[in-house]
Computed example of a mutant assay.
Amino acid sequence: MTGLLITVAPTGAETAKDDCPQLPTTLEELVATARECEAAGARMIHVHIRDDQHRPTLDLGRLKDTVRALKESTALIVQLSTGGSVHDPLEQRLKVLDAEPDSCSLTMGTTNFGDDVFSNPWPFVTELYQQAQARGIVPEFELFDLGHVASLQRLLDRYGLPAGGRVHVDFVMGVPGGMPGTAAALVAGVHALPEQVTSWSATGIGRTTLPVMLASLSMGGHLRVGMEDVLTLAKGVPVTSNRELVDRAVGLAEMAQRQVLTAAEARLLMGLEST
């Protein structure tokens, strides 16, 4: 078994602050959450930001302030979401790279997302990838379905390796409209990964969180946890902080005899030591 990278996704773009007051939506709350989760064992943070009314935003000034504050306050790998919310226009999502994060998410295709559509047409995917290559920003390839795995192979064959030379992917499972959050689906996805892939992680949305986490740990994969993906620890037991979810992941990792990576090891895994 390899060492374990834990990514925390603390906020997302779907949950309203009024419905979940403990969700970190201000910069101060996000920085405090990042420091708590780093102390618990997280090594990368997947970031969505909110405006003064706690609504999802891709405001470039706020994104730059967020990246700067997280880098000053933690040693976490700072990964900005280029997905935003499902309603954000493609041109605004491309501009996220102007905030100069360490890493960015790069979703490998369009998928149904509950009652909405998460649009990632091929020209957008290739433009985002080439811009990330040119800027030395390391992508994490988000895979919501098996077709996205095939698209990743197509992208790598056509445009080569990303900045840093490592290929890290994340299976996002259990989204209504995407692949189910089951061990069988994860096995199929990992089996289909291109040979260029050097590491992979998985996250299960909602009630699929634990099945996906346990399957990933047993298969040597890495984990993404956080309040973007789940708001309960068990039926009827709400999450009170992102640190609770990181603590749970670390505890399960210890049971599986998986040791959490150091900050330097995490950067090596992602290919950031040479960017």
Rank of each mutant, 00 (worst) to 15 (best):
Q257I: 05
T240K: 15
H46T: 04
I205W: 05
Q92E: 15
G12P: 05
D247M: 06
P101M: 09
K235I: 13
A9V: 03
Y159D: 10
E36N: 11
E36L: 11
I77W: 01
L245M: 10
A39W: 06
G177C: 11
A150R: 11
V117W: 10
A99C: 12
G189N: 05
L156D: 03
T2S: 15
L5A: 06
L161I: 05
T232M: 12
V230T: 15
Q53Y: 12
D229F: 02
I6F: 01
G251P: 06
E140W: 08
D88R: 01
V125A: 01
T111E: 10
A34R: 02
T262C: 03
V172D: 06
T2N: 15
L4H: 04
P101K: 07
F171T: 05
R224Y: 09
L23P: 02
E28H: 13
N120L: 08
P123K: 07
A39V: 08
S218M: 12
A234V: 11
R43W: 03
P56N: 12
Q131N: 13
E273G: 06
F171L: 01
T182R: 09
S151M: 11
L231P: 05
R35G: 07
P211T: 01
R135A: 10
S218I: 04
A134S: 15
H191N: 15
L106K: 03
T7R: 04
Q153W: 03
M227D: 06
A9W: 00
L161Y: 00
E142N: 12
P89F: 00
D102A: 07
G220L: 08
V149G: 00
Q92S: 13
D52I: 13
D52Y: 13
L223N: 02
D52A: 15
A215P: 00
R267I: 01
G206R: 01
R248A: 03
G174Q: 01
N120V: 07
Q53T: 12
G204R: 01
Y129F: 10
L217M: 02
T66E: 06
G12T: 02
P139I: 01
V172N: 07
M227R: 07
P162G: 04
D102I: 07
D247K: 05
Q53H: 14
V8H: 03
